[in-house]
Design a protein around this nucleic acid. Sequence first.
DNA 1: GTCGACAATTAGCCCGGCCTAATAACTGGA
DNA 2: TCCAGTTATTAGGCCGGGCTAATTGTCGAC
Lengths: 228, 228
Amino acid sequence: MSAATSHEPLTRSVEDYLKVIYALSPEGRAASTSDIAHRLELSAPSVSGMIKRLSEQGLLEHIPYKGVQLTSDGRRAALRIIRRHRILEAYLVARLGYTWDAVHEEAEKLEHAVSDDLIERMAEALGNPHADPHGEPIPTAEGWIEEVEATPLTEIPTGEPVEIRRVTAGDPDRLRYLASLGLKPGAPVTVLERQPFSGPITLRVLGQERVIGHELAVCVLCGRSRRA
Amino acid sequence: MSAATSHEPLTRSVEDYLKVIYALSPEGRAASTSDIAHRLELSAPSVSGMIKRLSEQGLLEHIPYKGVQLTSDGRRAALRIIRRHRILEAYLVARLGYTWDAVHEEAEKLEHAVSDDLIERMAEALGNPHADPHGEPIPTAEGWIEEVEATPLTEIPTGEPVEIRRVTAGDPDRLRYLASLGLKPGAPVTVLERQPFSGPITLRVLGQERVIGHELAVCVLCGRSRRA
DNA sequence: GTCGACAATTAGCCCGGCCTAATAACTGGA
DNA sequence: TCCAGTTATTAGGCCGGGCTAATTGTCGAC
C-alpha cells in the first residue's frame, strides 16, 4: 500500500497513463502494454517502465506478460481525472462558446492543471451535469460513474425510434460532420434502412432523411428515449 | 536568433523564469541570479544553468556576474504569460465566484495550460478588461502593457481624496483583511493622518475611519480619481 | 514437442531541470 | 593594493520520463 494511500500529487504523465488504462480495461479485463503504448503514442519500453513504477506505487496490478489492471486507488484516480476532463468540456461548450469538436484538446491540457475547487465550481455553475457534450457520463466527485447502456446505430432495428446517447468519435472533423447532420446526444433518430456488408445506413433525424457510412454509424450510440 | 523566432512551446519552468525576470527588471535594469533564485525558491546554480540555456535560446541577455535582461522575444513571451495570468484571475472572480485572495494560486497553474484561444474567449466574455482583480494592468494580446502610475498610501498627502488603483499584496491573509476594510481597487479613500517613523495611517474609506499599519499601507497604491 | 512470430521486458542511453560541493569573480574596506 | 566576504559559475549527481537495441516469454501452427 504505502504510497497508494498518501496523496502525493500525480504527474501529468501518470494521469494520462491511468486514464487510458481505465479506458482500455472494461470490466476487469487487463490492458496490454502495446495497447497502452499505442494510445499514448509512446514506445512499448517506456510503457513497461512506467507500469513498473505505477504498480510499485499501488496504482496498478501488473501480471508480467499478461497485462495491467487498475487497483481501486488507481481507478479512483482515473475517475477523478475523467471527471475533470468531462466537466471542463461541458463548461467550455456551455459558457465559452466552444463547439463539441474543439473541447477535447483544450480539456486534455487543463485537466492536469485545475484544482478540485475550480472543477466543483464549474460543475455547480452548470447545475452538476451528468454528461459531457459527447454524452459521456461524468463521474461524481466520490468516484461513482453511471453505466450508460447504448447501442451503436449499426445495431438498432429499423423503424424503432431511439435517441442518441453518446457519440464516441474523437476526431474533430468527424464530430463537425455529425453535428452538421444533427447527430448529437439527445437527438431522436429512426433507422430506416441498413445495407449489408457494413454498408451505409439510412435514417431519419430532425425530420430529414440522411445516409451515413458504417464507420461513422458505429460511433453513434443510442438508447430508448429516456422520458417515455 | 535561430530558436528565438521559432515558436516551440515554452516549458512550465521557462515560463516561470521569464515571468519573474520580467518582474525583477523594471525599465531595463538587470535581474541578479540570486534574486531570481529567491523568487522561484530554487538554488542559485539551478538558476545559473537555466540562464545559460535561455540566453542561448535568445530569450535573455546575460552578462556573466552582472545579471540578465529579457530580449524582446523574452519580453513578449513574459507578457503573454502575464496576460494569461491576469485574465484568468479576472475570469475566476467574475464568473466562478472566487475571491481575490484565492485566484493567484489557481491562475499560477492554469496559465501554463490554457490555449491562446481560451484566454481570448475569457477576455471577450468579460468585455476585455484592462486590469485584474488586484488592479494590475492586463497586457494586450499584442504585448502592450499600460503603465499605471500610482502612489502608495504611505505617500499620499493627508486630506487629498484619491482612488485605489492597485493592491500589491500577494498573501491571501493580507488580501482578505484589506478587503474586509473595503480597501480594493476603485475604492475612494482619503488619508486623514499619518504617524511618523513608519507608524499607522488613519484614513477614511466608504465613510468609515480606519487605521492600518505601514506594512499594509505600502501595498495599497492610489491615484487621482480617474473620472474627474 | 519444437519453432517462429510477436509481445514484453531489460539494458543502456539522453534530456530537462533540479540539487550540493567546490571554485571563481567581483567589491568594498583596511 | 590586497584580502575577505558575497555572489556567480562550474563540476558532478539524481530523478522522471522518454528513446533504441537486445533479450526473453508466450503461444499457435505444424
